[in-house]
Design a protein around this nucleic acid. Structure first.
Lengths: 177, 177
DNA sequence: TACAACATTCATGATTTCCTGAAAACCGGC
DNA sequence: GCCGGTTTTCAGGAAATCATGAATGTTGTA
């Protein structure tokens, strides 16, 4: 229930609605995948934004959340490496940027989740009551190691594919809003 | 059920402690990875058990949790396909079995998490305000599709490797406890 | 220096998650 | 058909999660 009116009439209000809806759907899917709710919404908004750069105020307006919420969500996203914080040289407001290599980092981050499990499995292998359990635990461990290796290969292949598609890293064109 | 649970003090009680600790560590790592706490503990216990088969009573004793908790945790694990429920032909108690192809299913399950995100990104692409956002969303979508394909290949390679290591599927030898 | 614009921290309240105890449902065997 | 053993359902409460408002901190500018 959109209790808040809508003090943003100048822009084309037609596609706007669909855009907001798409953002929320994407946020919902990301949240389902494990991202906390507000970070998911912020990330979805940034990814759907024209130049992928938004200030805190823009985010509060677009998502109808408090400044504190945006602060916390952005802090989270920066920590996991999905967003970087920039400061316009002359200005006093931060601008948050959706990082373009997130997916790559997502693949590498798998180490952080598999690593502890592998170590725990190691411990389990040495503490196993008998050969049967030892073998079962060892196979699980082997699988996770395998996945880690595959992830690395996957990251390489993705990089190659991306590079092939866009020979020049078209980084320029950053415009202030 | 015999009031004296098991006449298994002959076993080395020394390693027992280390075993329980290893189970808890593994459970903790799995929980960190996204599994709910009690299902994580149940799964860790099953994986570390000698023949990977435990009854509800054994689980309640080993983990010091209520029967209701075990019931719920097992229900969860069965739904996600990590455990299967068996009934000893002559007996009246269920026995829960750690499935040996969980890892394979883990890879396939990625579809269930990526699918919704991909669909949301599709929606975002059509609703995007301009070409810049459209391109960014499209690249994300492409990455997720790529990951899905890679996962499939990964599953194949793991299957091949496993088959190569153990030509015969050594399924026999299931003994009652 | 004081002020204004932003951003962050912290305590609070709302919501959700998670396990427990108790009662109910199930199921062979007597 | 009744009983003991076993599992499931369900309401409840403890604990974690999350976003908010108000206060505090930070930074550029008049």
């Amino acid at each position: 229930m959109p209790s808040a009116p809508r003090p943003q009439p100048p822009r084309a209000t037609a596609g706007r609605e669909a855009g907001r809806e798409a953002v929320e759907h994407l946020a919902s899917a990301l949240s389902e995948a494990g991202l906390p709710p507000l970070p998911a919404r912020v990330w979805a908004a940034l990814l759907s934004d024209s130049d992928g750069r938004m200030t805190a105020v823009e985010l509060t307006e677009a998502l109808q959340v408090s400044a504190a919420g945006v602060s916390g969500a952005v802090k989270y996203l920066v920590q996991v490496g999905w967003v970087r914080r920039e400061r316009e040289p002359g200005g006093r407001k931060d601008v948050y940027v959706a990082m373009d290599d997130v997916w790559h980092s997502l693949l590498l981050r798998s180490d952080q989740v598999y690593g502890p499990i592998i170590r725990a499995l190691d411990e389990g292998v040495t503490a196993a009551p008998d050969a049967q359990a030892r073998e079962r635990l060892a196979e699980s461990r082997e699988f996770l190691v395998f996945v880690g290796e595959e992830m690395a290969g996957m990251a390489r292949r993705w990089e190659a594919r991306k590079r092939e598609r866009a020979p020049r890293h078209t980084e320029g064109g950053r415009r202030s809003r």
